[in-house]
Amino acid sequence: MKTILETINLNKAFYLGEAVYAVNNVNLQILEGEIAMIVGPSGSGKSTLLSLLGGLDRPISGDIKINGKSIVTLSEDQLAVMRRKSIGYVFQFFNLIPHLSALENVELPMKITGASRKEARERAEYLLNEVGLSPRAHHRPDQLSGGEQQRVAIARSLINKPAVVLADEPTGNLDSKTRDIVISLFQKFREIENQTFVIITHDTGLTQYAQRVVRLRDGKVESVVVAS
């Protein structure tokens, strides 16, 4: 299998009175069609690493390659286009547009790509059905629970069939039943679309579903376990 996501000597530091390396010389390789999980204690740099992988932030040095192409030199506009085609991102705090309904939130990324309203609506309805939110499709985010918003965010990340889905604690707000639904969904899309999932989680129980588990500590890769 080919490498779809790769980081080379990746660094990200913040100056908080003194330099703090949230991501410190991280070298990673994630293969196409894998479910990779990034685990580690709070403050270990998981979310920072994920936002770097998604082009949401800029590293201070190092390289990130998606499908063999470096993204660190891309402009914000080029990054947006790259995200549109190749990356689905699930934020820890959902980040849904508050004045759009669940359905509109999900279909928006597809509409942005120039897909017709009908196509986008059909795909969004399908995904909302998959995450068990069809009855709540026309509710705005403030009318949904945290778990429901999380599922809307997951559906949104899948709408353009991206090569890589990056999810920051996608099951953090979910009960065990819904958590299983979401994980099954990831597995299903991995099998159908050959999509790659990079998931940050605190839930060690989830690692059983992963083909690769990356453990971070103080911004550094402590261990990488690949399932046989």
């Binding site: 914000e76 506009d77 286009v81 085609k85 508050p98 942005i112």
Partner: peptide, 16 residues
Amino acid sequence: RKELAILKSIGARNSM
């Protein structure tokens, strides 16, 4: 800001 960030994160170009 957040609304614009979401739009950028889902692939909206600057022109949009």
